[in-house]
């Protein structure tokens, strides 16, 4: 189904007025694609019927939010990013008595387990709390369980090695019936919670904030709001890490931050 610009704005308004989900700051081209994709998946014959369902069925809204947001993720996505974390950030964190890390837009949690493995191998996990948040409760349920398809492990163990993994990746999980479960030792230091970057406030002070492949879906204004939120939530000399195509450069905050040497999208707060 093709959704026209005006129709898209109707859906955005419906979701906000009726259910309190504010997608008005999302980049329109991808939002439009997501709605069109959903209408196609669920085989709506017309826009009117699609909209009617959204307006009348509060249960369906859960599915809408799940499908409108892009939840694609993997363990050790962009392995070189994790190499940079190991080389440039972990040694600094090691000097702190206690470490708080916020993973915003963590999706189904692969990123949180990757981070936990990194910290574990640096012997820092025991003194760290990982706050893993997302707008989407369904993906957080998956994250909490730490159960993923076994078929993905070949790719993940390659990523793990490319990310400077020091151990035997298969020791971090147990496999059963086509699925793997990551060791509870890794999730013991994680706190999962819904948090909406559009509307929710800061909830703690962190030494590291990682928010990857979330801001590409936001327009400039919303990106700026989120940068302020992160700035308010980050300790001085803390680190912000973004996805490989995202930048703090144009945020009006760049003079408060210094990009790290590695060439990865990691900044340190210097004032």
């Amino acid at each position: 189904m093709q959704i026209a610009d005006e129709e898209l704005e109707l859906l955005v308004a419906d979701l906000h007025d009726r259910y309190g989900y504010d997608f008005s700051g999302y980049a329109r081209a991808s939002l439009k694609r997501r709605f069109e994709r959903l209408a196609g998946l669920d085989k709506f014959p017309s826009f009117a019927e699609f909209r009617y369902k959204i307006l009348k069925d509060p249960v369906y809204i859960k599915r809408v939010v799940e499908e409108i947001t892009v939840n694609v993720t993997e363990m050790f996505r962009d392995p070189h990013f994790y190499l940079a974390l190991r080389a440039e950030i972990l040694p600094v964190l090691a000097t702190y008595p206690f470490i708080r890390i916020w993973l915003a837009g963590v999706a189904s949690g692969e990123e949180a387990y990757s981070m936990a493995i990194l910290l574990y191998e640096a012997n820092l996990l025991h003194k760290t709390l990982i706050y893993a948040t997302d707008i989407n409760p369904a993906v957080l349920d998956v994250a909490r369980k730490g159960i993923y398809p076994a078929a993905k492990m070949k790719q993940y163990s390659e990523n793990y090695l490319a990310a400077g993994g020091k151990g035997d990746f298969s020791e971090y999980y147990t496999a059963r019936y086509g699925y793997i479960k990551l060791n509870e030792e890794l999730s013991r230091r994680m706190i999962f919670s819904t948090h909406n970057l559009v509307s929710d406030a800061t909830f703690n002070e962190f030494q590291v904030i990682i928010c990857r492949n979330v801001l590409i879906y936001f327009d400039k204004t919303l990106q700026d709001r989120v940068f302020h939120l992160f700035n308010d939530s980050l300790d001085i000399f803390g680190f912000i890490a973004l996805g490989s195509k995202e930048t703090l450069k144009f945020s009006g905050m760049s003079d408060k931050y210094k990009v790290l040497k590695s060439g990865e999208k990691i900044w340190r707060k210097i004032s």
Binding site: A29, S30, R33
Partner: peptide, 13 residues
């Protein structure tokens, strides 16, 4: 993707 204001946006879906 191309936005109406003629900027690019990227999508990792």
């Amino acid at each position: 993707l191309v936005e109406k204001d003629r900027t690019f946006s990227l999508d990792a879906s």
